[in-house]
Design a protein around this nucleic acid. Structure first.
Lengths: 264, 264
DNA sequence: GCTTGACCTTGACGCTGGGTCAACCCTCCA
DNA sequence: TGGAGGGTTGACCCAGCGTCAAGGTCAAGC
């Protein structure tokens, strides 16, 4: 006959755990000797080791109870399921190892790869790191609000970067972080933007359905306005010249300008 | 700006969890809008995703706190350690899968492989399954009490089975489960045992240091006596003939018999 | 026969990482 | 204007034990 600590040690559990199993009825209370000590037989060893094997696999004790009480068929099914969960857990942990390595390498896990690639491309074009961080934060906010459309939007941004004028625009905007609020170079930026817009209109890209919903267009625009003090001034200049929008460009007829006031 | 549910959804956690992180100071409380709603920026997204990456790796939240507050060097060291723990956990789960498969296959995990092999050998010799179960339970009790010496003891039992008389003995003992208490065949068993003992004495195996400690010899003997009603009678017969012990045999001189009573 | 130290007993509280109400307020849309 | 679907705080609940606390028992040595 075994004492509780012999039983526990052999099964690789603590004495406390064995008593816990007694309390919840998972392991039957054995006979006591005349001094009240529990005395265990081989059956208890077998059952306890079964309990631990299942519990080590992450099975809740209540479910262990069910399984040990079930017939062999139900037991086999249960074990199948547990094994499936174990395989999934192993995969999850392997995945976590990968994410952890990327975190340690200083990667930003808050953005999908497509956006990270886009930011790397900007960096490669010589855009200042401060500006890239601003863009990154803006993209994080966008991705958090519409995670499903982020990839298609970024694909469009990639296309735009094929235009040398757009590259020029970025290098100017990058430097604009240090400009005073009324810096005249903002006009130069507006000029480049207008050229880009004209070309977009000629290519028939304006007014076509771009597959992005209206609310999202508003979101992108407002994110842009929030991101820099120059943004609002830039939009004002462009509006004077008959353009509206940023994400989705519209040509506004001269007589419909200043529609902030409702037409009387 | 994001609401709590946008933040939570993007980071793959529940709103409740985010609030929990606020309470324990893991994620700083953000500004509120005029109606009391929390409003989050990109920094919160980045921090929350870092928290989750570490927490998913099984790091306690208190430790996450420390790591995120630490310098890059300490952080890298911490991540190293976490990764080590992850690898260990993955190995443990793979091991558990193996044990689970053996459990499902009906194996008894309560015994080391050496004992399982020994029982299989008995089974191969035609020993009855009931007797093998008895032996198994006895070996479980022994293994639980002295796990470190079990292998060497089993090795000796394997050697003994090379003797055809020992094989005969087992086949008799196996059948003895159904004998009445005073079955005369027990004498036949005693005869075989005596032959085995004589041969052991001749081979010089008796009295030599067998490397097993005295307490353990007592344990094996008492386990044997408890296992069957015939065992005690068998030992009594052998003692009449001048033999003592079972696990470790001793030749007792005729004039020293009945030493239960102290010599006057 | 007494002490010592290792073991046994029950019972109660603590811990992590949130889940789950409850009771209420805010915003948006028809 | 009202109802759905957000948000807010607060309080209690869960597994699976760990960790005291406050003793009773046993074996061994003196």
């Amino acid at each position: 006959m075994l004492t509780i600590s012999q039983l526990a040690a052999y099964a690789g559990v603590t004495v406390r755990a064995v008593r816990h199993y007694h309390r919840i009825g998972l392991l039957p209370e054995p006979e006591r000797d005349r001094s009240g000590y529990r005395t265990y037989d081989a059956g208890a060893v077998v059952r306890l080791i079964r309990i631990r094997t299942l519990a080590d696999a992450g099975v809740p004790l209540a479910r262990v109870q069910e399984l040990l009480a079930a017939g062999p068929e139900e037991f086999a099914d249960g074990v199948q399921e547990i094994d499936k969960a174990l395989r999934a857990e192993i995969r999850r942990l392997q995945d976590t190892r990968g994410r952890l390595a990327r975190l340690a390498a200083g990667e930003h896990l808050a953005l999908p790869q497509s956006v990270v690639d886009y930011l790397d491309r900007l960096r490669g074009l010589g855009v200042e790191e401060r500006y890239i961080e601003m863009e990154r934060d803006a993209w994080i906010m966008i991705a958090a609000q519409v995670p499903h459309s982020i990839d298609s939007v970024i694909a469009k941004k990639h296309e735009e970067l094929d235009d040398p004028d757009m590259v020029k625009l970025y290098s100017l905007l990058s430097g604009a972080l240090d400009w005073p609020a009324d810096d005249p170079r903002i006009v130069e930026v507006a000029d480049i933007m207008e050229r880009l817009m004209v070309r977009a209109v000629e290519a028939g890209e304006v007014g076509a359905d771009d597959g992005i919903d209206d609310q999202f267009v508003d979101l992108l625009d407002s994110t842009m306005v929030e991101s820099s003090p120059h943004a609002a001034r830039l939009l004002a200049i462009l509006e004077e010249r008959g353009w509206r929008g940023w994400t989705r460009i519209e040509r506004v007829p001269a007589d419909r300008l200043n529609t902030d006031l409702p037409p009387s």
